[in-house]
Design a protein around this nucleic acid. Structure first.
Length: 103
DNA sequence: TAGATGACTAATA
DNA sequence: CTATTAGCCATCT
């Protein structure tokens, strides 16, 4: 089970105030097309509270509303707390906050 | 081994 | 802008 560990590690590496898409994480682990498995890995979330799953969003810049750990409102608050601007529709400006794999 | 499932993504209407 | 279709890939049964 190395895939999951790689996903968790990549997600943890997302710097505060930044966000990454599932595709970015998938690419980071070596499987650019396995974006679904990234989401699945977060679903398992074996290190809840440690893995910043709230920083992982869709490629269109929308947060995973509906599957958020405590609620989309909470997720929005957490992201804003870290400096990420979230729109009323839970959309994020990827051009400004997207993590490029490097700080 | 094959079929089904899913926190996805891109293309099309 | 939203809705629908199809493709992808790791894991489960």
């Amino acid at each position: 089970m190395g895939f999951f560990e790689e996903v968790y590690k990549a997600v943890k590496q997302i710097p505060k105030g930044k966000v990454a898409t599932y595709g970015d994480i998938a690419r980071a682990v070596g499987s650019p097309r396995a974006s679904r498995q990234v989401g699945w890995a977060l679903h398992c979330n074996p290190e809840f509270g440690v893995i910043p799953c709230h920083r992982v969003i869709f490629s269109n810049g929308s947060v995973c509303t509906g599957f958020a750990f405590g609620g989309k409102e909470v997720q929005k608050a957490m992201l804003e707390e870290e400096g990420v601007e979230v729109s009323e529709d839970f959309k994020i400006d990827l051009k400004k906050y997207r993590w490029r794999g490097e700080e």
